[in-house]
Amino acid sequence: MLDILHPKISNINKNNIDINLSEEKIKINIRGKNKEFFTKVGKILSIILPSETNTSSSNENYDVLWLSPDEWMIYFDENKNTNIFDQLYKDISTLNVGSITDISSQLICINIKGENIFELLSSGSPFNFEKFKNNVGSSTQTLVNHIDVILHHKSKNNVNLFVRRSFSEHLYEWLVDSSNFI
């Protein structure tokens, strides 16, 4: 019987920091440059891909993060729309308008929330969170404890942290350890 095994990440709550595994999410990497690409993606997702550095756009279904001038990541709950990947792949990849890659298992989403989360992240990240923490919707890629992460400021003091699956347990343990010393 085939079943799912998530990384060993359990809920931790201390020093005004709440750390949770937030899986059951589809993540899709979207690449493209031309006008046709933007139009098609916009139509399929009913969302305009954010063009501004370190930002995101959201609607009731999807969150889209800017990753680079020709790269975005969308993520959403897996029970929301399961065939959106196939639709995107068909209209973008197959028609050579851009590139669509399923990275749902590539990245693990760890939700961290609470007043002290930016203190927590700052103990392992050189990123300047000054602006980021004042702007809900900010997104960024940076390093936390030497590990690549994508951060999305979902709502006030509530951040979705995406990290490669293989690093996720190590980073989680580090986050838990760090939250002892805020």
Binding site: R31, G98, D102, I103, S104, S105, Q106, R164
Partner: peptide, 11 residues
């Protein structure tokens, strides 16, 4: 016209 995406951890 080429796009590269790492999927090491996806599989």
């Amino acid at each position: 016209d080429v796009y590269l995406t790492s999927v090491t951890d996806h599989y």
